[in-house]
Design a protein around this nucleic acid. Structure first.
Lengths: 359, 359
DNA sequence: CTGAAAGCGCTTACAG
DNA sequence: CTGAAAGCGCTTACAG
């Protein structure tokens, strides 16, 4: 009644061995490309495998070979994205990183186990443990775990964090926020002569946002310009956060700085919209900049001046480091920093770029 | 010399049992939320787990419980995306689907095993088998496997295809291409009075592109308008493909139709650029439409008229169906079709939309 | 409620 | 080169 088709107990290596008239050891050797089996044996096994349609069980392989050929990736993602109209944009960043991980993993015949935790989940430990148990190594986006948490899980599995913090038991991979922001602010001040600039950041527990804010403050300080930031200038890495900050500013009759340096491109997108609502011109009245250089940045009006970071490469690097750790190599250090690059387009006040893609 | 740190043989359930002074059976029961262990036992186990920092091995669990709590997703992706400047856009579609899968999987505490195969790989069987062996079920994008191939793998693992073909051993999940294109063509002809329209398709082995082409031809036929298509009108679902078709058209002095119906939004994006290069105005000289309604569609100039398909929901549905199959339920049918919706914006000739997002 | 033991499906020394 | 057998780390009847 329950099981109409009592799933015909799936094939095992024993079935193949019997069918080929050899031992399971020989089947295993052939399947794993050992060159010991002689041609005839190999042939018989291969034929049996083909005739039976045998696919070896990964769990059993992993258990006895102590290698799963899987790396886990855990990151935060809102529960319900279906309601948001621009769902596709909001978390693109994470997806591009994951793509980088996957592409690098493919080169080593690894697969990537993806698992998200809710944004408000303060104790993602259980989910992380579950993924850790299924992987040979872990990539953690953002600060998902405390340093102690990392220490605990790292006893079982090597860990690489992405834009996280440095801990004694993991390797952190991040981009050079300092350099990017320094160049950007220098450009705004030296080339355009802006004197009052605001930093529109994100969550306070985002190492990236904090680092960008600090680099911003330092650059402003050095130039002797006016730097604006603080709680009213806090977004959430998403367009709605950026729009909200600007709308609130108008609501309380606050005055606009000459330039707004956003923590990322999506925030800048929201800012652009909120400014357009009020008829404020960019860059004539206010300059706006981003960070990331996501693909839409080129399609915004005006095109967005931003700091490019190698998003996909970030993921690929994380995998490569993790892979070497899995193979027992020693960590290359506690942190790997990838370069960033200032991308000047129209939103800072420079003449709009006219290059056409796909040439 | 090889192993500096002979990885201290990781903890097992035996270590925990010994430390807690109970049997491994009790440890297992506590860890799996069985309510048989009495409070005191439970407490001792939990304490031992915490003190030792124990994380159970997923492979061993999977092997003995016959459930991995993993679904595999396999899809095509170019080898080297790092060179392409608009990397982020090109394969967004796949990533959004995968996101849908992951979000649905999370609700059932499943993780998603991601693996791509190269675009030119004609025999992805080995990689697919590898993923199949590590999962409880498989989601295959596009036609990755022949019907026979699916039959073979399906003997071990339930399979759901995404925008694939109907086979006796799998369930296909797709969107209603027919309805979307019918509405779109009707709009272009009835509302705008266009009489010559071209369909700019993609690969011939893409069921989606073929279905859209056929629906296009049928709608054109019904209306008695002029339909243009064929080898010169074949792109690749990417912006460069769309741009190439248009440039080639100009190169051979071909004449432009009044409207170009593209197989997807990215193709339309490339068309828009190639048209702009020549100073051709959209929609005044030529109308251009897309399919998908990816986020950038709203940011293009003019904003793109397109057919929205619930991309993320496609992935979520695939997971839900697969999950029921994994649980031994019978297939809901051979195919599930999700609705599409015409989204009218400026590129077809309608007055541009002015709505601002994030309100 | 709890424990001893079998078994999940492979890989891999160990002999021959 | 090949096979018998142990073992990977869990879960789960089966007894008690």
């Amino acid at each position: 009644m329950d099981e109409t088709h009592p799933s015909p107990r799936s094939l095992t290596i024993y079935d193949v061995a019997r069918h080929a008239g050899v031992s399971i050891a020989s089947v295993s050797r052939v399947l794993n490309g050992r060159n010991s089996p002689r041609p005839e044996t190999r042939e018989r096994v291969l034929r049996a495998v083909a005739e039976l349609g045998f696919v070896p069980d990964g769990a059993a392989r992993a258990l006895s070979s102590r290698l799963k050929e899987v790396v886990g990736v855990v990151f935060r993602r809102p529960v319900d994205e279906f309601s948001v109209s621009d769902e596709g944009e909001n978390l693109l960043f994470v997806d591009v990183i994951n793509r980088g991980v996957e592409i690098a993993a493919r080169r080593q015949s690894f697969s990537v186990l993806i698992a998200s935790v809710d944004v408000f989940d303060t104790h993602p430990d259980a989910r992380i443990d579950s993924v850790a148990g299924k992987s040979d190594g872990l990539i953690l986006h953002d600060p998902l775990l405390s340093a102690e948490g990392i220490g605990r899980v790292a006893k079982r599995t090597p860990i690489v964090t992405l834009a996280g913090s440095v801990t004694p038991n993991s390797v952190n991979v991040r981009v050079d926020n300092e350099h990017g922001i320094r160049e950007l602010v220098r450009h705004l001040i030296a080339e355009h002569g802006y004197r009052s600039l605001a930093y529109l950041g994100a969550h306070e527990n985002s190492p990236d946002s904090v680092a960008r804010g600090e680099a911003f403050a330092a650059a402003i300080e050095r130039a002797g310009a006016e730097g604006i930031s603080g709680p009213e200038w806090r977004g959430n890495y998403m367009a709605d956060g950026g729009a909200r900050v600007i709308r609130n500013l108008f609501a309380r009759n606050g005055s606009l700085p000459r330039a707004i340096v956003c923590a990322n491109d999506q925030t800048a997108l929201g800012v652009l919209y909120a400014l357009a609502e009020r008829g404020v011109r960019v860059p004539e009245d206010v300059a706006v900049t981003g960070f990331d250089d996501i693909p839409v940045a080129r399609h915004m009006r005006p095109q967005l001046t931003t700091v490019r970071q190698p998003i996909q490469k970030l993921g690929a690097t994380a995998f490569d480091v993790l892979f070497s750790l899995i193979n027992g190599e020693r960590p290359p250090g506690t942190e790997i920093v990838l370069p960033t690059e200032l991308i000047v387009r129209g939103s800072c006040g420079c003449p709009a770029e006219t290059a056409v893609p796909w040439d």
